[in-house]
Structures are given as C-alpha cells and as structure tokens.
Design a protein around this nucleic acid. Sequence first.
RNA 1: GGGCGAGUGGCGGAAUGGCAGACGCGAUGGACUCAAAAUCCAUUGAUCGCAAGGUCAUGAGGGUUCGACUCCCUCCUCGCCCACCA
Length: 809
Amino acid sequence: MAHYNFGKIEKKWQKVWAKNKHKIWHTAMPGQHLISNPKHYILDMFPYPSGEGLHVGHAEVYTASDIVSRYYRMKGFNVLHPMGWDAFGLPAENYAIKTKTHPREVVKKNVQRFKEQLQSLGLSYDWQREINTTDPEYYKWTQWIFLQLFKKGLAYEAETPVNWCTQDKTVIANEEVADGYCERCGGAVERKNLKQWILKITAYADRLLEDLNGLDWPERVKEMQRNWIGRSEGAIIKFKVPMPTGRQESSKFEVSVFTTRPDTLDGATYVVLAPEHPLVASLLNVKNQSISRRTKIKNIEEVLNYIERSKHRSERERQENKEKTGVELKGVKAINPLNNEELPVWIADYVLLNYGTGAIMAVPQHDERDREFAEKFKLPIINRPLININEVIKKVSGKKIVNYKLRDWVFSRQRYWGEPIPIIKCEKCGNQPVLEEDLPVKLPEVKNYEPTGKAESPLAGIEKWVNVKCLKCGGQAKRETNTMPQWAGSCWYYLAYLRGSQKSKVKSQKLVDPESEKYWLPVDFYIGGVEFAATHLLYARFWHKFLYDIGIVVTKEPFKKLINQGLILGPDGQKMSKSRGNVVNPDDVVKNFGADSLRLYEMFMGPLGDAKSWDPRGIVGSQRFLSRVHGLIGSHAKMKSQISNFKPQINPNDQNSKIEKLLHQTIRKVSEDIENFRFNTAISALMILMNGIEKQPLLEIRNSKLLIKLLFPFAPHLAQELWEKIGSKTLLDYEEWPKWDPNLIKEKTFQLVIQINGRMRDIIVVDIGISQEEAEKISLNREQVKKWLGNQKVKKTIFVKDRLINFIV
RNA sequence: GGGCGAGUGGCGGAAUGGCAGACGCGAUGGACUCAAAAUCCAUUGAUCGCAAGGUCAUGAGGGUUCGACUCCCUCCUCGCCCACCA
C-alpha cells in the first residue's frame, strides 16, 4: 500500500481550520457570555522563540496538550487552550549585538516562524488570545505588578554578587561562564558585588511550602520545591571574637552562627567563616588600608590570597567534593559561649555567605563535612555528651529560628532586552515608583546593545530617557536602568491569556477581568518540562500568592495539575545540540512523514514524562499505521452504500460481536489513557483495534466512525479527511466523543492461573466469580497439576478471586 | 558537592504484588514481482530437548512474601536540575 498524500490532506484541513467561521477553538472573551459548561484551562509552558525554530521537544508537549484539548472539547467541555511567546531574554540580545539588528525585529521574525511551525502540526490553539511578553501592552502589567510589590515592601535594593568579566567589563550570565572564564572573550571572571533589585520571595516561603500539599503535581516536583525552599529549624548562637587589638570588647567583634544542632555545642572545636563574611574584613581592618598594623591576624598574606582565590570560584565549584580548602585566621579566637573554650577561627569557601549566617560552628564528631575538614587540617575531634536543646539555647542566650535555603530573588539584569524596572531614583528623595498612569515605561531605542563597560544596562547611556524629574521634589532624578529577568513575564502569563483579544486587552483597565478569572482559574492542566521545578514554577506561585493577597485573583494557587514531559534525546541517546550534530528538525519530519505521523510517533515513543531517544526508523511504524487506516476506510468508503445497511448479529460467538467488544474496550482504554496522559498505551490500543478490524470480512460504517473519532485527537488531519470521505460534512471538533457500554466489555470467563509453590504450572478458562472450592476441585483434577503434585501433600492453598490459585506443598 | 529521577529482548517500550516482554521498530523465512520497493503472511528473550516440556532471565547483591520488574536495604551505572540559558 502506498502512503496517502498526507501533505495535501494536512494543508487542506489546516486551511479550513484557520478560516473556519465558527471559530472552533475560540472561547468567550471578557465581557462576553461565558458558556455554563464545565471548563478546562489547558496550558502549555509557552516557548522562548529562539532562532533555532521549533524543536521536536516542543512538538512533544504541544501535541500532548492538543490531544487532551481536542478530547475534552468532544466531551463537551469549554476548553481554553492558548499560546504565546516568552520573548525577552539573552539570546535575542546577543544576536542583536552580533548583527546590529533590533531584538524586536529578531523576535518578530522568530515568532512568525514558530507560529507557522505550530500550525503545521495542526495544533488547536485559540490564536485570538495570543500574547507576547515584549509587547508594551503586556509588560505594562508586568511593571504594574512590580510596582505593587515595591509598594508592599517586597522589592528592595541590596548588594549581591554577579559574574564580572574582567576583560569585557560586563556582567555575564552563569551560562556564559566556563571554568572561571568568560565563554565569549576568554577573560577571567570574578565575583563582584552590585546593588540590585531583589524580591522578597522568602516572605512567602512558608506558604509556598505549605500549599504544595494541596496540589495535584508529580510528587518529585513537589519534593524538589520542598528541598529548594529547604526549611530547617535551628538556632542562632553568638560567639565572641575578642578584639584583635586586645583593647575593649566591641559588639562588632562577634560572630553569629546558624546551627540545626544546638545540642552539640559542647563538642564544637572550631568556627568557619565564609571568605566574604564582613567579620573577616573587620578583622583585617581593611578600611584603614593599613591592615598589618592594627590586626592581630598573623598570616595576612595567606588570608588575602585565599580570599582572592575564592572570588574566582563559582558557588558550585566551592561545594564540589574536591579537597576542602581553608585558611586559619591565625591569632584570632572565638569563644564557645557554653564552656568558654577558645576555638580557632578559619575561613573556607565551602561555607556560603548567603546560607544561614555565612558562618558555622564545626562539630566534627557529629557532622561529616566538619570531620573531613578537621581530619585534613588536624583540628581536634572531641566527643562530648549532647545537651537538651532548650537548655543550651537558654544558657547561651541563643535564638531559635527557622532558616530557609531559599534566597530572595535577584531581580535586576544589566541588560537591554527586558522590562525596564519602573522606578525613579532621586538622590534627595530616594526611590520613587513610576505613577501607574505613566505605565508602561517603554524600552527606548538605543544605537547599540553592547555592554557599557560599567556594571550597568545599555539603557544608562540614553540620557534623554534616563534623566527625569523627581516625582516628589521635582529635582534632577534618573530612571532605574536595570531591566527585569526573563522570568518576570512568565510569572503571570496564564492570567494574560484571560485578557482576551487585542481589542479587549487595549480597552481593559485591569490586569485581568474578574469574571473571566473566576471562571477560568485555576489552570486545570499545566504541561511542561521538569527543569522549571525550582525556578519558573516557584516564581509564578510566588507572584500568584501576592496577587491573591492584594485581591487580584481569588485562587491561592495558579496551577491545579502539573504534567511533565521528558526530554527527547538524539538518536545517540545524547541531549540534542547543534555541536553534537544530532538535532532532529520537526520541519523535515513533517515534510517526509506528515504532521500526523510526527504527532503519533512522538506520543508512541514512550511515557510522556520519560526521557527517550529519537529513533529515525521508529516513525515509519506510525506512518504505516496511519496509511493502513487510510487505506482501509478510504477504500470502504467507496462502497458505503453497501456496507451501511449491514446489521450486526447478536450471537456472542460471532465475529461481529467480538469486534463490538473490542471496540468498546478500546473506547474505554483510549478515554482513560488520554485522561491520564498515557498516550503511548492509548495508541497501542488503537493499533490493536485496527488489527482486529482488518481481520473482519466486512467493515461496518459505524465501526469506521468510531475508529475515526478515537483517532482524531492524535491524528486530526487524517481523521477529518476520512470523516469527510465516509460522507460526514461536520467538523470532528463538534462531534461527541464515543461512550463505551460496560455490559459489552464485561468478561464472562477468565484464565485461572494454577500455581504450585508460586510457579505457574497450568492455566484454564473458567467462569468469572468461581468459588475457591470449585476452583480447587477443577484444578486438582488437571493432568498437569497431578503430575507436579505427585504424592506431596497440599499444606496451604492461596486463592485470588478471578485470578489464580496457588498450592503450597 | 546537593536535589530529583531512571535501569526490562537486537532497539523504543508493556505489565506497579499474581501468565514478564502488550504494541511498535528491526531481523529471518515465505507470498506477490522479470527484479526491486511497497504490501501481505509466518517466526523472533536466552538455553536444553526429536518432541512433550523444562531451566534461566527485568543493572548487582541481600531482605519481606505462598508469590517481587513491582515493596524494603546496600551498591553500581546513566539522565535532568542547582538560583543571571530558557
């Protein structure tokens, strides 16, 4: 059988769908009457429209959500299934620097290509709701949310470290750092502190943790978020560090450590500070630039060298299990507040400034890392009895606290291509929020997107834009020139779709129409990669909870059910990448095999959530299957007048009744599998049905219709084509999903497995509901059973109803 | 280093406490053909046996159970994420 002309069929129906005057995939706009049907909001993680174009991994998620959307539409649900573009970000900017094109133009081109590619897969999006995070009408509201955060004290400025390329004189992303050097220019990278905007996500830590319990998310994602938030109970204990000059005691010369084990305090044998810890600078007395005279530290050179070295190591490197490094601050001692013992003080870069207090007390007897360190540097390891936690804390005036691994969210980027942070800075009056009526603060045009050589955004160079009047005093002020991170736009985009069409968006004076929000939220199915577990998914939950607090939304959580898709690896089992040369381009696959074959194959490859490698031969199986369906129904459609009168027989032994049963089993299997995102087994069930139908002497039109409907969510073009071929004029989107008859599926008999000592020795067909006595009687009469039992005595019999009987001898 | 997953035929996978290998790919043999492709039919975990049938087998080792791919423990290997890639 030759393959059907998928190219022609697919183009034909894509055209019909695009033009369709009934707007099959459109849902009611804000202000329009909402249908009272039950709803499903089925959301894809929207793509970053990269220059590479659509990836087969995109095709995988989007096909999955498309199947579910089509299924629920046929089940009578009001389905919202939108798509948009997460279009701010680094690659567009880097490309702009290289080619001198405006990122806006790059994004426009890429979006167009992505959209065409998505449409070539036959995905049923409500395109009238399309959004783009770089659209000023869009980022106006991203900025608006920032203003609300600022007004509630949840956005603040503080010094935080960035990767500073010493050659380019610019801040670079983690991704652009390779082994301590800048990936682009090869210059050395060091950590440098910069004043940046920070969002207080830690204020929501407890709620973000608590509310995970109510979410229908994969347990592993919830677990990742729990660990990321990293709640731990412990205490802050202060160690005095006597003034190195030996004169008066000062509160400055003490160090607070966070410990989860205050009960081990008696066994502490040394104290470790992060190299950046402010106490280290104080001890070195750096500000006088006369370190050596006023400090007690005897090994200044060594200490300074170590601090300098740490600057060049990333956080990850510092925590890696290579040899632990550290330097003792010779001459400095910390006093254990419990027993007044003098402890040596070290600096080591495995202690991080931004976790806990940036300082630890080391108890080598109880902590593995401390012991390793102690063994390497020959520090004492002592075993002292544990003391009751409350007693310790009371005795040393410690403070019980809850500590989180979660850190506040650094929200500034020294970049052009992002949302400008809507703040005006006045030297006299401080930070002023831009007035809401002045939003959006639009990105101005710049001549080039190159870094400025100072740690600031290219926006800083546009004087006309930067210089403004202070809103309070009217004096000379400047705009904030940092932009927001790419995550900002994706924190609320599921709400942006509810703003509706371009027309209703422009008209709207609110972030989201309350009616629409009440009806559509929460998102029922949110589908995307597990790699966002601790970033986007946490950031979006944080913003949503904030919007809940200020009365914008009525739900506490944005995404009710989360579904993860796994990576599609190259044929070599490696992650697809240009440099490996193992990238599969979906355009080629669509051209050579058809969109329906691509969709079917990607869903058939394995469980949605698993990583799986692309097998260039595997797709022919999917294509072969579709061609067989096309051949069978297509050829029979010509004779439809003859077969439509065919009457099914009632006789249960008749072929026709068998196929009836298979059909209903398949309807059930496919329905249940779609609802549970198990597409690989759903497709396998369709194949089994097809194999059964092919063996039939005659094809009943009713059976064709059922098969077509079941196939439709997976291979919509072919299904719609065949639907037309058998004489139906409707669009399948409006057809009802088949129901199964439980009576037709019910089995009357089953295969009873007979085991002896747990090993299968015989199998017989018996009636469902057979009693243990009867099963025993029949089994013990079987030749096979007699042979295996011999003259051994049955000690025990295990009977599992409608399944097996096991004789223990 | 930390966190989260996964290991089943030649390959992708199915079975989540009860017949291991559904469905598909590939391979082998056959039909059709001058021939090839396509298609159709049959076989296809390993091993012993003429056969009936047996034994072994789900990364390795142990445990729980009448019974373990499935649950528990130890180990090995691989994948993903780690806060400025998205």
